[in-house]
């Protein structure tokens, strides 16, 4: 237990703003590489893809906080909100690059794409699901909504991350390992979450019985 204690102690010593600073680094790198001309022959696609990939990485990190606590006893819960904010930040930038640089605000073509193209529809629904999560991701909202309803709102992250990973898998022309690996991790997290929910419900039932 010494290791977990040390980890927990050092985690408590790290201020939350450090996570935000670290989380901004990928964006700084993307901007720097873009201006250095290091984003390849099709920079817009590369930027769009990289932002999407960081979004899913931060999303996965956010959702591993609870399993890490439950399975390893390492408590990083105070970093979860910042990781969630960073997730939304990268999802939003990914969407902005699609709107502005890729599709260049051609609303007609975009609207058709959103309605007709399953992977874009799915990505868009995922984004919309994150809006209430992001809007209530603060202490005031917890107080105002009450812990129970607040938690219900936050549970939208589970369908959202699934849709995000699916969006990534569907973008590819052929079945590719990278997106499938992300999907695999997401599915493991979701199955773990569903099982612990069921377990929790079972325990509650047993207690009340």
């Amino acid at each position: 237990m010494a290791v977990t204690d040390t980890l927990n102690r050092s985690a408590r010593a790290i201020p939350v703003w450090v996570i935000y600073i670290l989380g901004i680094l990928p964006l700084a790198y993307i901007i720097f590489a873009t201006f250095a001309g290091a984003m390849g022959m099709d920079p817009v696609k590369t930027i769009e893809h990289e932002l999407g990939q960081y979004a899913i990485i931060f999303f996965i990190l956010t959702l591993t906080i609870t399993p890490i606590r439950q399975l390893a006893g390492v408590n990083l819960i105070r970093f979860r909100r910042s990781l969630g904010h960073l997730t939304f930040f990268y999802v939003f930038l990914h969407l902005l690059v699609w709107l502005g640089l890729d599709m260049q605000l051609q609303w007609g073509q975009m609207w058709t794409d959103i309605l007709k193209r399953p992977y874009i529809t799915i990505g868009m629904v995922g984004f919309v699901l994150l809006l209430p999560v992001m809007a209530t991701s603060n202490d005031t909202s917890i107080r105002r909504l009450g812990a129970a309803s607040w938690r219900k709102v936050q549970k939208l992250v589970y369908p959202a991350i699934f849709l995000g990973a699916l969006h990534y898998v569907m973008v590819q022309k052929v079945w590719e390992a990278e997106s499938m690996i992300y999907m695999g991790i997401v599915l493991v997290l979701l199955v773990y979450r569903l099982r612990s929910l069921k377990l929790g419900a079972l325990l509650k039932k047993n207690r009340s019985a």
Partner: peptide
């Protein structure tokens, strides 16, 4: 089926 062919980059 997954994207429009109306414009190109």
């Amino acid at each position: 089926p997954r994207w429009s062919q109306a414009t190109e980059r």
